[in-house]
Nucleic acid binder design. Structure first.
Lengths: 343, 343
DNA sequence: ACCGAAGATTAAAACGATTCAAATTCCGCG
DNA sequence: CGCGGAATTTGAATCGTTTTAATCTTCGGT
């Protein structure tokens, strides 16, 4: 009991955080005035605004988010819902980078809610909306009649999704032009002499399966090439299942001689399957590239790039615009594939 | 102007969110009583507590986070700072999965703050601490005398970092036993007949560079094998630079015949460099595996696995414990490498 | 019947910001 | 000299919760 330093209820103490009251006392103004001055309210004299701003800067004042939120109902939070399981390699990261860029300097915070699609997709969103946990929502893996979109439109809650729906009512989205991707991929394979093209697509539950299919079908119509769409496996299947399937199919009489891979993992799995079947040399494919790793794995890999970082930026921009001006028509952007064939 | 439904200032309306007041009115109790009842305060009669809980459940009451936070100062937020640029493939995702698991059902929310290490690492942390944006902090890429650690210890702010420091004062951390990793990797290479081992390490600024080096040196002492640690490239170098370096080194007289790769990307880059130099057959390496992709790329790849998902879980657990019981000695965990050599 | 002590409930004051309505100051002009 | 109104500033209420310090009941004991 020498130096009685037992007076620390919470460890962290230090000087108390400056509040409006602090500034009010320092400047001799009322709290209300300070508040308006910082908001650059023209009803406050120019000189006062300057003085207040100066003091605020000096003592490093930052408004308390909780207080502001309680009063105004605005959270200054954008919520991104991500599925760390299903998202392809690097997808989440790239999206984060883009989004961060878009939100930079806007005062908006990014909250990432991981959610595993195996579980119901609606509850976490319902929680965020009814509990006012965020001012806007971003999610991926959109379905043709996505219940999240329906719910959020009903609630009038700002959101942007990655991927389109088939609802008639327009809503904000950012999507990759998967129709163009599949068309270009198929065209490339045909040009290389492929006779029978196999496309590995996402499950029925995702809208972009149809887009890919349309693109493929357009190429099929124009070139008359044979095609196949397996229903044993999808882009969401675990890699070992895809590989096993590919291995099995590789030696059948009508085995495909060209693949359209909707993702990098599936390219790898199919390649491995063909190799395991001793048909490695016959493996030919065009894949959608996200992280760019395929070209590292196999310098000869043919890929079409989807710019996810840009998608993140667009999602952020669209959402901010949506929050600021809800009455405007919903912003929608279709991203063109970046074709990177070696010629 | 038939049905005058022009009374919707904000688009979103619906029934007002239930608050303590709602329950108070329904039950005829005072707000204070309801608050205590929900907190299971023994000063409130058992019967009352039951009744209040029932009503709350019925109307789906959820306490307002902002209000609670304003009053108590607790944010119920854990902040994870991630660098989406430098983090190796799948690292961020795996960490998220683990962390989410640890936080599940605790009432804590996870906020991910992306931060690019090119910029100063301290400001975002300072903001979070002084602005009380979170109750606890998790970050990665720890330095020997990490300024973030120093700052957070000074402030008495709860945190756990991924990686250790060289400070004498103990603090919470979770780390992979990189010494053991490097030792095992070197041993494996020597057993396979390698004469000159090259280890690609992280930059000086990261603590685990030393750990890896120690492991390597221990193996060197025990076996007498030659070794080399390049200083032109590190694990953080862009892949093409690593590849160019590897290509150059591949044909020198004393070129290494075995590599220890601290990450998956570097394995790939060095492999490509050797291939480009026409020395593909001479490439032999043991790599640290995170996502497990290397075994997919090359079935023969030798890897030692680091379980990042588990690391995320541990980080979460440790942080929660740290927040709840700051007086206990700081929780620290060293994760053992998972050796997966084919025998 | 009254005292006092539990036992149960509640009024009221925070937390820090915004905002409506009201008050104050300042001018120019009749 | 005083009045009207514009220009500024401010008091007070509010958001939903927690918590301190009462207040109100009840009841056993004498």
């Amino acid at each position: 009991m020498p130096t009685g330093d037992h007076e620390q209820p919470s460890v962290r103490s230090g000087p108390p955080r400056p509040t409006l009251k602090t500034i009010a006392e320092m400047s001799g103004l009322a709290v209300a005035t300070v508040s308006r001055a910082l908001a650059d309210d023209p009803k406050i004299a120019e000189a006062t605004r300057k003085r207040v701003a100066e003091i605020a800067r000096l003592i490093g004042y930052e408004p308390d988010r909780a207080a502001r939120r309680l009063r105004t109902g605005r959270t200054m939070v954008i919520n991104l819902i991500l599925d760390p399981h299903f998202e392809v390699l690097g997808f989440g990261n790239a999206l984060l980078v883009g989004l961060t860029g878009a939100l930079e300097g806007t005062g908006y915070n990014l909250v990432v809610t991981p959610h595993f699609t195996e579980e119901d997709v609606l509850p976490p969103i319902r929680r965020i909306v009814t509990n006012r946990q965020a001012d806007g929502l971003i999610f991926t893996r959109t379905a043709p009649f996505d219940e999240r979109v329906r719910f959020l439109m009903e609630q009038g809650f700002p959101f942007v999704c990655h991927g389109r729906t088939e609802f008639t009512e327009p809503h904000p989205w950012v999507d990759h032009d998967n129709e163009a991707f599949a068309y270009a991929a198929a065209g490339r394979l045909v040009a290389q002499g492929c006779q029978r093209i196999c496309a590995l697509l996402p499950p029925e539950s995702l809208t972009f399966r149809q887009h890919l299919r349309y693109g493929l079908m357009r190429a099929v119509r124009e070139t008359g090439v044979e095609f196949h769409i397996p229903d044993e496996v999808t882009l969401d299947s675990p890699m070992d299942r895809i590989q096993a399937w590919a291995q099995a199919i590789a030696t059948t009489p009508d085995s495909p001689d060209g693949f359209i891979c909707g993702g990098e993992a599936s390219w790898l799995a199919i390649r491995n399957g063909y190799r395991a079947a001793g048909q490695g040399a016959r493996f030919r494919a065009v894949a959608k590239s996200i992280s760019g790793i395929l070209s590292q794995i196999d310098a000869g890999a043919e890929v079409i790039h989807e710019d996810i970082e840009e998608a993140g930026r667009l999602l952020g921009d669209h959402l901010l615009r949506r929050i600021a001006e809800p009455h405007l028509p919903p912003p929608q952007t279709l991203q063109a594939p970046v074709i990177q064939f070696r010629d």
